[in-house]
């Protein structure tokens, strides 16, 4: 599996040069110079407009004249276009309900679950749904899906029509803190390439904090699992990619994996 369509904005966060690794906590004053700096993500200008404060526990980042706080803990908020790993937890004739690790359950309608290659040409063919067959799922199935609509009030809607999307019948799904996902991918996908090359596993990383892995054998999968947990633990440190390659090589020798 590939993660080609990486959102460059999300990935810059942890790796950016300007990120001074200063840990801030909610309510901490980031700057009192409100003329030169603009409050960005995770920050707030106080009522008297005298200082900018942090809202999350995270890392302080200055980008041009924006001040951002990159969260270290938090929950996943669905956004249209995100790929997520969903677990089917309820089904009825008109929709499936899926757990996507967010505050709401997501909805998958049969019209968004059309089988691949079954859509006949529109010219000449009937416009109705007679020649469209949608895939059927059972409760407990793991799906890789894309969010097509999400807002504050309604349940997010999923689709499984697209590249790399669909049901997974093998592999392991692990969950980490959603804000640390960019770190697992690395700048321009460097970390994920490293993990793939060294552990010979297929990895699919999704925005809701779930990672699907499938390796040659269980030993590689265990090694990858430990490596991802280590990344999650040390997400706020510098030079993680180099350290991870050392870690995986040494663990390979310890465990006797080639």
């Amino acid at each position: 599996m590939e993660n080609e369509e990486l959102e460059s904005e999300e990935l810059d966060e942890f790796e950016s040069e300007e990120t001074d690794r200063e840990i801030v906590v909610p309510g901490e004053v980031l700057t009192e110079d409100v003329e030169h700096f603009i409050p960005g993500r995770g920050t707030l200008l106080n009522k008297n407009k005298t200082k900018i404060i942090a809202l999350n526990i995270g890392l302080k980042q200055i980008k041009k004249n924006y001040i951002n706080v990159i969260p270290l803990r938090g929950f996943y908020t669905p956004k249209p276009g995100d790929k997520v790993i969903a677990l089917v937890i309820d089904k009825n004739p008109v929709k499936y309900k899926c757990d996507i690790n967010a505050k709401d359950l997501a909805v998958l309608k049969p019209r968004n679950a059309i089988k691949r290659g079954r859509i006949k040409s529109f010219r000449g063919g009937s416009q109705g749904s007679s020649n469209m067959e949608s895939e059927e799922f059972e409760v407990g199935d793991i799906l890789i899906a894309k969010i097509i609509s999400a807002d504050r009030l309604n349940m997010p809607e999923l689709t499984i029509v697209g590249k790399y999307l669909g049901k997974r019948v093998n592999g392991i799904v692990i969950t980490i803190d959603p804000p640390k996902i960019p770190r697992v991918i690395g700048r321009n996908g460097s970390m994920i390439k490293l993990l793939k090359n060294l552990t010979k596993c297929n990895i699919f990383v999704t925005q809701n904090g779930r990672i699907w892995i499938k390796g040659e054998n269980i030993a590689y999968e265990r090694l990858l699992f430990d490596a991802i947990k280590k990344i999650e633990n040390e997400a706020h440190t510098v030079g993680l990619t180099d350290r991870m390659s050392h870690y995986i090589e040494s663990e390979k020798q310890k465990r006797g994996i080639k």
């Binding site: 909610p26 995770g42 809202l55 803990r73 804000p179």
Partner: peptide, 11 residues
């Protein structure tokens, strides 16, 4: 609450 990553104005 702060440890959970809930956005807060202050402690």
């Amino acid at each position: 609450l702060a440890d959970a990553g809930v956005p807060m104005r202050s402690l």
